[in-house]
Amino acid sequence: MEKHKTQTDKNFLNLPYLKNSDWREALKLKLSDIKSGGVELNCKDWYFNCRDLKEVISIIQRSGFKLLLIESNIPTTIVSASALGIKADLYIEAGENTQTTNINSKLDSLSKPLFHQGILRSGENIEADGDLFLHGDVNPGAKVSAGGNIMVWGRLLGIAHAGKGGEENAKIAALQLRPLQLRIANQVARGPQEEPEAGLAEEAFLDRQQIVIRPVQIKSFYKTN
């Protein structure tokens, strides 16, 4: 069972996992099953760029429905959706066999880090409920935020907000930590002005309501709070 009808005006649709299947056909098939109202689409692990998503929207609109929300477990899809101004949520599965989203599996997913690979450019942003791990640079003007820690395997030159839900033990670490602005929980700080030492990964954390930067300490990072 892949389709759930919780309210009369909202329809949850899931795209199939199969990589060799055609999502256009699958989407049309699913749309033919529902009667009216808005659509919340779970794109699963499909990689969609803006062009694909525009096609998704036009297919949904041609069938007479409105796209309300995109869910996906692929950050690329989420970033494209936000670029088009569609409300997008990250969706992470609890186990192999679960095909549907439910509240419990979402809570479980908070402890799982979100992984994203690639350069985050000016104007782009990525959000995670739990920890966020980025393989690539965060350019000036880009924004990353996470409910937990943020780790950047690359340069952090944009804005980073760790512990956005108020978690004061959250940390921000990067191979090169030179952000425009750092935020941890409710505290805000400007990034350091001077050039950092080459080859020295740094981390920022909250010490007596102040954001402090120091070289990364492996022990402290993996210590459970």
Binding site: C50, R51, L120, R121, S122
Partner: peptide, 15 residues
Amino acid sequence: VRDADRVIGLLNTNG
């Protein structure tokens, strides 16, 4: 450069 960076991001998402 900042504006170019933004545009490159948009071009990438548009394939």
